[in-house]
Design a protein around this nucleic acid. Structure first.
Lengths: 140, 140
DNA sequence: CTACTTGCAAACTATTTGCGTTACG
DNA sequence: CGTAACGCAAATAGTTTGCAAGTAG
């Protein structure tokens, strides 16, 4: 049996750096959908001279390589995740926390939508918003 | 029959200004989901000394009054709309154009989601992305 | 060796804010 | 009149970029 790899050449270098590997490892180790600055702060222990520019540059490369996804989480700053299968998100409208939300993905909705528009639909995104349990417990 | 108006006092002034009225009128007259800068450019004809700060300040007030909604459209800039009933959006992943998309709104999905999480769900947002007809026609 | 990557610092973009003046109600 | 709203300009915040030096392959 022959397996065909979908190794679309990414036009991006195959070179690694300890910094880039660590950013990916960090993103894979958490479900909090970190910001660039969170990653930066976290990594400064191991890389005392780390630059925020390096974090942003590597995040862009990882996104381009399809290893990381950027979330425009409805805040003033972006968040990132390394969980690449389709899934939805739950966003706390008070504290901004982002959780994965494993509602079954509506695959059919793209086709259904495609029949209703001249857009060529590529996908969809669902974000639920509400109050996380911590914020629900707090005073107004 | 007594109709109870849900006139929650908005804690926002009831005062008008020609600029604010015009911003709302502009937003109500279009379906393109304008940016603050688009509104600014558009209004400069009638208000030659208009300030971008004024546009932003009024947009914030209109949002607070529930007359306008801010869309974080997945770009570096925000877009605004005055169509306030629940509806979804279609976003061109090449040119960033935002269209309304009148797929019937899944009301039930909030309750269903609520049973699956300790978040107190307030609502959801669906964005479809793809290529608009103009971009589909273009060369890569 | 030779690019790709880094750290540093400056630049950029969208948005917000302080302040003295204008104008709506 | 009093105070919300204005225009102007400076300030923020998050992100991007130019450059000289470092480093992975």
């Amino acid at each position: 049996m022959i397996t065909i790899m979908n190794n679309t050449p990414t036009h991006t270098s195959l070179r690694h750096s300890r910094q880039r590997d660590e950013i990916l490892a960090l993103l894979r180790s958490t479900t909090i959908h970190p910001t660039a600055d969170w990653i930066y702060q976290e990594m400064k222990r191991g890389f005392p001279h780390l630059s925020l520019g390096t974090v942003y540059r590597n995040l862009a490369i990882l996104v381009e390589q399809g290893l990381v996804r950027k979330l425009e989480s409805g805040s003033t700053f972006d968040r990132f995740e390394a969980r690449m299968e389709a899934h939805y998100h739950l966003i706390c409208s008070r504290c901004g926390a982002v959780n994965d939300f494993d509602l079954p993905v509506y695959e059919e909705i793209n086709e259904r939508a495609g029949r209703m528009t001249d857009f060529q639909i590529q996908g969809h995104k669902i974000e639920f918003f509400g109050l996380c349990s911590a914020c629900r417990a707090q005073k107004p």
